[in-house]
């Protein structure tokens, strides 16, 4: 399997970051960074990572199913993650989640047919003092209002607000 030069450089750095014989430590970071480039953790990627760190593919699968940010299927180009945990719940996060679902017509961990947006109701993302908060891919959006959310979804769909 071939990756971009940047990702290969990252892999090389990761594999050199851990004590000798401990290359398995690089597994989760490798999967995360590769997923960012490829869109998901494919069976091919599992095999490739396993080969490079010297474990069996099933040892990689066992680990990847544990972590909520690693996905076997591609997400939307923009992965919209709405937090509804306690601080966000108190400030309107649950309503934002309902709004996002109804505007897009999809639910938890679903993707729009054109692949532009996917939705996920997430647990605390560490933005409690600036709640309600949303993350689009790795980008934080703080103090989100219903209007801000509509504008955000519209820009992600690259359409006018009336079509959202």
């Amino acid at each position: 399997m071939t990756f971009s030069t940047e990702l290969e450089a990252k892999f090389a750095r990761l594999l050199a970051s851990y004590p000798p014989g401990r290359q398995r430590s690089a597994m989760i970071p490798m999967l995360m960074f590769a997923q960012d480039e490829l869109g998901c953790v494919s069976a091919e990627l599992v095999n490739e990572v396993a080969r490079r760190i010297g474990v069996t593919p099933v040892q990689v699968e066992e680990v990847l199913t544990y972590y909520s940010m690693l996905h076997r299927k591609p997400l939307g180009k923009a992965h919209v993650q709405v937090c509804t945990n306690i601080s966000c719940l108190l400030t309107g996060g649950a309503e934002l989640w309902e709004q996002a679902c109804s505007r897009l017509g999809i639910g938890h961990k679903e993707v729009l047919p054109d692949g532009s947006i996917s939705l996920e109701e997430v647990e605390c993302i560490g933005a409690c003092s600036w709640a309600p908060a949303i993350q689009v891919n790795y980008q934080f959006h703080h103090f989100v209002t219903p209007e801000k959310l509509d504008r955000l979804l519209a820009s992600l769909r690259n359409e006018n607000p009336h079509a959202v």
Binding site: S17, P29, M32, F33, Y67, S68, L70
Partner: peptide, 9 residues
């Protein structure tokens, strides 16, 4: 070194 997690409280 930095080391990333992958979503697990």
């Amino acid at each position: 070194y930095t080391h990333t997690g992958a979503g697990a409280y």
